[in-house]
């Protein structure tokens, strides 16, 4: 039985480690946490295997055979040495794991040696994320976006806030998360190590649009990050663009702002059900009204939908020209 148990444990550990548990290892934090998980697996599998092995062995060896119906087992009431062992050994194992976890925790949260840390604001509201790059990052005016762009290999410290209820800022590939709490600003840091685009997820139930409260984070080279920052300060839609260009730009904005997560719009191929179906409610509505619906969504709410659900910040996060383009597109698409 002991041999069987050891072999089963070994196989179990190999199998458990062979599974690709974590998403992409896209940050130093992910690496350290996934290593911790590997250690936890190596410690856990033998315990589980031990219990299963004893149960199975007992079933095989000691099951009632015909003729034993009236027999009892030997009256063993306990064994102090055994009981001490199975109290002390698990306790030691537990303390070891706690110590290691404590070290990992210190490690993933420690501030970078150089003060070269990027500071970015993360703001959650039902049901969208916005990201704020302060002046010291942009070198010019403060910048607010709906997509998070980060330079690779540089520690970032997020300051997380919320406008309404509790949200939770989580990038699974970074393996870090923290709640956005009304009345507080919370912080954590990551150091992205891998180029690519990853999902940003709200992990705390925040209402009916919880499952569409998504954004994305793009990790890019430092040079590209600076280029992107510079681009953001120039308008997306050039002044005096023709109507067709405006509509095309508006369609892009509709997609990049994640409008389709909540709204159905046939032209954009979106099927969200949190908010009103735009194909229906915007049909024949004039530009001024569409604009008001975006900037001040609670001014007039479509029948059957609640107040305070659509973010009221698009007036701030979108520039005037972007708004114009979005309105032009919506007008065109629902004609």
């Amino acid at each position: 039985m002991v041999v069987a148990g050891v072999i089963a444990s070994a196989i179990g550990i190999v199998l458990a480690l062979a599974i690709e548990w974590f998403p992409t290892v896209a940050a130093t934090q992910t690496k350290k946490i996934s290593t911790l998980y590997d250690v936890l697996l190596i410690a856990s599998v033998p315990i589980f295997v031990l219990v299963v092995t004893v149960v199975v062995a007992a079933v095989i060896r000691f099951r009632m055979r015909p003729g034993q119906e009236d027999q009892d087992g030997p009256p063993i009431h306990g064994n102090t040495r055994l009981e001490v062992i199975w109290t002390v050994l698990p306790a030691l194992l537990i303390l070891g794991l706690c110590t290691y976890s404590y070290i990992v925790l210190e490690d993933i949260e420690k501030a970078p040696a150089a003060a070269q840390e990027l500071r970015i604001g993360v703001h959650g509201e039902q049901f969208a994320w916005t990201f704020t790059y302060p002046e010291e990052v942009t070198g010019g005016e403060e910048l607010t976006t709906t997509e998070l762009v980060l330079p690779v290999d540089r520690s970032v410290r997020f300051s997380i806030t919320t406008a309404d209820v509790i949200h939770d800022f989580w990038v699974p590939d970074f393996a870090m998360k923290l709640d956005a709490v009304p009345g507080l600003t919370t912080h954590y840091r990551v150091t992205p190590t891998r180029l690519g685009t990853y999902p940003v997820v709200c992990a705390e139930l925040c209402g009916l649009g919880h499952s569409v409260m998504r954004s994305r984070v793009r990790v890019v080279e430092q040079a590209e990050f600076e280029r992107w920052l510079a681009e953001q300060s120039t308008p997306a839609v050039e002044e005096g663009a023709g109507p067709d260009e405006q509509v095309a730009a508006g369609k892009q904005i509709f997609a990049s702002e994640g409008c389709g997560g909540c709204h159905t719009l046939a032209d954009a191929g979106s099927g969200g059900q949190i908010g009103p179906n735009l194909d229906d409610v915007l049909k024949g509505v004039d530009e001024a009204k569409i604009r008001e619906d975006i900037v001040d969504p609670d001014a007039q709410i479509a029948a059957g939908y609640g107040a305070g659900i659509m973010p009221s910040t698009y007036g701030q996060t979108l520039s005037d020209s972007e708004l114009d383009a979005l309105v032009a597109y919506l007008k065109e698409a629902t004609k």
Binding site: L36, L40, C98, S101, Y102, P172, A175, K177, A203, E204
Partner: peptide, 13 residues
């Protein structure tokens, strides 16, 4: 495993 803070941070919720 969930008691271990760093792992819990990742898998909470």
């Amino acid at each position: 495993t969930l008691a271990m803070v760093p792992f819990d941070i990742h898998v909470s919720d």
